[in-house]
Design a protein around this nucleic acid. Sequence first.
DNA 1: TGCCTGTTAAC
DNA 2: TTAACAGGC
Length: 469
Amino acid sequence: MWFRQDLRVKDNPALIKAAKQSKVLPVYIYDTSVPQNAVLGGASKWWLHHALVALQESLDGNLLVLSGDPQEILLSLCTQHNISSVHWNRMYEPWAIARDTAIKKALKASECDALSTNGSLLWEPMQVLKKDETPYKVFTPYYKNGCLNAPDPRYPQRKPPLSFMDDMDEVKGYQGVDSLALLPRVNWDLHMQEMWNVSEQGAQCKLEYFIKQAIEEYNDDRNVPSVAGTSQLSPYFHFGLISPNQAWYAVHDAFNGSRENKGVYVYLSELGWREFSYYLLFHFNDIQNRNFNTKFDNFPWVQDKEGLRAWQQGKTGVPIVDAGMRELYQTGYMHNRVRMIVASYLVKNLLIDWREGERWFWDCLLDADSASNSAGWQWVAGSGADASPYFRIFNPILQGEKFDKEGAYVKKYCPELSKLGKKFLHKPWEASEQELLSANIVLGKDYPKPIVDLKKSRVRALDAYKTIK
DNA sequence: TGCCTGTTAAC
DNA sequence: TTAACAGGC
């Protein structure tokens, strides 16, 4: 059993098949031959480390952890140990598909069977097509007509009874989780240790809590970054510590199959957006590097290293943007509403190519995921499938005032602003000298002056858009 | 899950 | 002065 982004023992279809067939040798291979843009970022590595430790425990210490080229490793394991078949759950990143296809071929050539299964999507991208057999490009018909009318997704399955291959310790090249050196050398992960229980049980706890406490208010509360109104399951989904099927059916079972509650409906449709991202990645495969809408290939992005740096460090002078970017850097996570705000700011107010934002998120997010990350950025930039129209430009002041009314979120991550009253918290540059003084703030010193004028940069963005219209 | 601007109407 | 609304980007 080759584990990849399915680091769980419950509802793991490939593991079930492997266990049914014979004794199992569970393997995780840290792939050292992935393309540059698929090398894991620091936050992802941290998550992976803990996820592997937890999986190791669930498998009673029988998980073989190696690093190197998966093809070489699998082939040599098969010959050395007389293994008759290799099982895995599919990945959908184009490079992973290419890799897995080659491995399948190589295994079969050396008389080892290779079997892949869908373990991470509710609906296989191949099986949801329009009547003309081409893929959907718009979310609503994809979800409503395509997915909801397709056969129901697999109901989650239990952990199978497992018996493992013997003489594990004898396996040549066994390295162990620590040898992958996934943890950071400096201690920037203290916050994360406290925030996340990185395990299958951790995922189930989050899910249960969310269904009991938050899902019915999800439609409103999910927009307020100071409230725990979202499921916070995204990092668990990425490495497969939970399957979408487990979430989908836990919600349906809790509400007797009804999707009438608005929060329930909207949450499930968010799982649908996750599916849609993978669907686009599968059918149009280069969405990580290329504009889905090729008009944007001529978009006049600006080269602005200083602006990019200020954005990355949370020093743009716009409180809600800075708070979000600091949350990301400190915790490996960012609230979804704030992700949209900071992304809109980078792409529209700073006019920086969405790929720069995509890269930064990839490095910093615990839930970094090619499909969701690319689709999300292209959605904001306006270049994606069924994207937000380019003229829809967030005003970060209004967004702050609307969704962080009391300023709790901004104050948490920009403590230097904590004495500033509500009136100017989201626009400190408009506060009078007096007001700033009594809040102990010198603009440009304690907190940055805005690096761009919001009105002017908005007009500049609209002008830029006209050039490719 | 957009925001701005101009118009109208009520006070 | 303000709210509500429509149209445009």
